[in-house]
Simulated scan of single mutants.
Amino acid sequence: MTQGMLFNTEEPPGRRDAPAQALAPGAWLFPGLVHARAPALLSAIGEVVRRAPLRHMTTPGGGRMSVGMSGCGARVWVSDAAGYRYETHDPRTGRPWPTMPALLRDIAGECAQKAGYDGFVPDSGLINRYGPGDRMGLHQDRDERCDAPIVSISLGVSAVFLWGGVTRSDPVRRIVVRNGDVVVWGGPSRLAWHGIAPVPQAQHPLCGDVRYNLTFRRTA
């Protein structure tokens, strides 16, 4: 399959009804699970970023992250010269982060339940905006509660989700995630290494050349 075919804006036939795919113990890919709710999710993202605009954070070493970030909820992940951490207030404005829209909270809980994680109520929602060429290196989510799952929702342009194991040396799979796809992981896979390969130049009817990722976590 060529890259042009891989990132075609059209949904593959039957994708929205495709069965869940087990990625590892406790980890699942749900193709097209929230496809029909993508416009509402994007509207909720717009509501959040109007109050907390997207920004390119810096790493503790001084590098600029290519992905635009914002968030909502009680605490949001931030990065700067002081390190990686969760903050209750937006460092740019000093104001509390926007309250998580009920739609986002409820959909995150429904997705977690679909993967067998009942009662998940996120207190942090991270918004990542990827343009062409933007990427997210392999990493583990270690700053959150490890007894709660992570819910990741893809919107807009397709991308390659990098899925590794719980050790850095484990093989890394390349999994195409499209608009409306959801990945949920927890339990024995909670600390799996993961990331996003550089996003290709492509177009999507809802988002143009942009991919949004919503990631929901429990931090306290």
Rank of each mutant, 00 (worst) to 15 (best):
A220V: 12
D181Q: 02
S169G: 07
F7P: 01
L33A: 14
D147M: 10
A27H: 12
R178T: 04
P13N: 03
D147C: 11
T88S: 15
V67L: 07
D143Q: 15
M69I: 13
D123V: 09
V34P: 01
Y130L: 09
Q201C: 00
M5C: 07
T167C: 06
T93V: 09
G180D: 04
V160P: 02
L42N: 05
C207N: 11
V76S: 07
A44K: 08
L23S: 00
R168S: 14
G62R: 10
Q113A: 14
P39C: 08
T2R: 13
A108M: 08
P132L: 09
T2F: 05
V151C: 10
P205R: 08
S79I: 02
M5V: 11
P25N: 04
G4D: 15
Y86M: 11
W163Y: 03
P60A: 06
S124F: 10
A115W: 03
G133C: 03
V121R: 15
D17W: 10
W193C: 05
V210A: 06
R168F: 14
V176A: 10
L191F: 01
H89R: 15
S158V: 03
Q140G: 14
G32P: 06
G71S: 14
R211M: 04
V210F: 01
D90V: 04
G71T: 14
I153T: 13
R16L: 14
M1W: 04
A112H: 11
D123G: 06
P60Q: 06
V34Q: 00
L6E: 06
G68E: 14
L54C: 11
G32T: 04
R92G: 02
P171A: 03
T59W: 10
L54D: 10
R105W: 00
T9Q: 15
I45C: 14
L214K: 03
R190Q: 04
P188L: 00
L191Y: 00
A36K: 13
F120A: 14
V78L: 01
R55M: 08
R135W: 12
M69Q: 14
D181Y: 00
A102E: 15
P171N: 04
R178F: 04
W97E: 05
P53Y: 09
Q140M: 15
W193V: 02
V78N: 04
P188T: 09
D134H: 15
I127Y: 06
V176W: 06
S154R: 06
D147Y: 11
G26A: 05
G26R: 10
E87G: 04
D181L: 00
A20S: 12
F120G: 05
M57D: 13
P122I: 13
A202R: 01
I150C: 08
F216Q: 12
P200H: 03
G164F: 11
D17E: 13
G195P: 12
A20I: 01
R64F: 02
P132E: 09
S169L: 05
V177M: 15
Q3F: 05
M65I: 15
R37Q: 15
S43Y: 01
A108Q: 09
A112Y: 11
P91Y: 11
V78W: 01
A148V: 02
I153W: 05
P53D: 09
T58F: 11
S152R: 06
H56V: 00
P200F: 02
A18V: 06
R15S: 06
V151F: 12
P149W: 12
L29E: 08
V184F: 03
